[in-house]
Amino acid sequence: MEMKEFHYQDGLRVSLFNLDHKAVPYHFHNEVSDMMYCSRGQITIELPDTDEVFTVHPDQVFQVPHPSKHRFVNGAPVGTPSRYVLLQIGDFDINFVPAAKDIAGQFAERTATQVTDGAVYIQDRKSDIIKLADHFEQDKPEVLDSEEQADVVAALRCFASRGLETAHPRSGRHS
C-alpha cells in the first residue's frame, strides 16, 4: 500500500492511495467522513458496525460517515493494483481499531453490495472543491505522477458534481 498525502488546507484534505493486496487498517474518524473515488481497479469497503461490505469500481464514489469503523481493501484480482482518491472535509482525526484480525475474519468470503450512482455529502464546499480541482489541473503536486494527477482532478470534479451540499445524514449516529 502506498499513501500520498499532498493537500491539507482550509479544512480540505486530499490523499491518493495505491493499493496492492494489503488493506488500509480498520479505523474511524470522529470529525470527518471519508469520501473516496475509485480511479483504478476495484475497492472494497468493509463496515463492521453495520456488517456491510461494498464494492466500488472506477469512476464511482462512496462515503463512509463518521464515526463508522471501516477499512479499504483492494477488491481486484490478486496482482491487479487499485487506486483511490480520498477527500475529507473538516478537522482530520484518525483512530485505529485494535484486534483488527478478528474483525477482518467476519468479512472473509462475504459478497459485497455493488455501488451504483453514489452520492457524497460535501457540506457547503462545492466551490472550494472545484477551485482545488482547477489548481491541481494546473499545478501537479510533486509527489504525484501525471496519471495520478489526472485521477485526482477527475475525483475532485466528480465529488463536486455528485456532491450534495449538506452533511452526511448518518454521521454521528452510531459508534
Rank of each mutant, 00 (worst) to 15 (best):
N18A: 12
N18K: 13
L19P: 05
L19I: 03
L19S: 08
L19F: 05
D20F: 04
D20G: 02
H21M: 04
H21T: 04
H21E: 09
H21G: 07
H21F: 12
H21P: 06
H21D: 13
K22R: 11
K22Y: 05
A23E: 12
V24A: 09
V24M: 12
V24K: 08
P25C: 10
P25Y: 01
P25R: 03
Y26M: 05
Y26K: 07
Y26T: 03
Y26Q: 07
H27R: 04
H27W: 00
F28S: 09
F28A: 02
F28Q: 04
H29T: 14
H29L: 15
H29A: 14
H29C: 12
N30V: 01
N30F: 01
N30D: 01
N30K: 03
E31A: 00
V32D: 02
V32L: 00
S33L: 07
D34E: 14
M35K: 08
M35F: 04
M35I: 14
M35L: 13
M35Q: 11
M35R: 11
M36A: 02
M36S: 00
M36T: 06
M36V: 11
Y37Q: 09
Y37T: 11
Y37D: 09
Y37P: 13
Y37R: 10
C38Y: 03
C38T: 06
C38N: 02
C38I: 04
S39C: 15
S39E: 14
S39Q: 07
R40T: 08
R40G: 00
R40W: 02
G41C: 15
G41P: 14
Q42T: 04
Q42H: 06
T44D: 05
T44P: 00
I45T: 12
I45N: 00
I45G: 08
I45D: 04
I45Y: 12
E46W: 11
E46S: 03
P48I: 06
P48R: 08
P48S: 08
D49C: 15
D49M: 15
T50Q: 09
T50D: 08
T50G: 05
T50E: 13
D51E: 13
E52A: 07
E52R: 03
E52F: 08
V53K: 15
V53P: 10
V53C: 15
V53M: 15
F54H: 07
F54L: 12
F54Y: 15
F54P: 12
T55P: 14
T55F: 15
T55R: 15
V56G: 06
V56S: 04
V56R: 07
V56W: 11
V56P: 13
H57D: 10
H57G: 10
H57Y: 10
H57W: 10
H57E: 13
P58T: 05
P58L: 06
P58M: 07
D59G: 03
D59I: 01
Q60V: 05
Q60T: 01
Q60K: 01
Q60I: 07
V61M: 09
V61F: 02
F62T: 03
F62R: 02
Q63D: 11
Q63S: 13
Q63P: 12
Q63L: 04
V64S: 05
V64H: 08
P65T: 08
P65H: 12
P65I: 08
P65M: 06
H66Y: 14
H66D: 06
H66G: 01
P67I: 00
S68F: 04
S68A: 03
K69D: 07
K69W: 15
K69I: 14
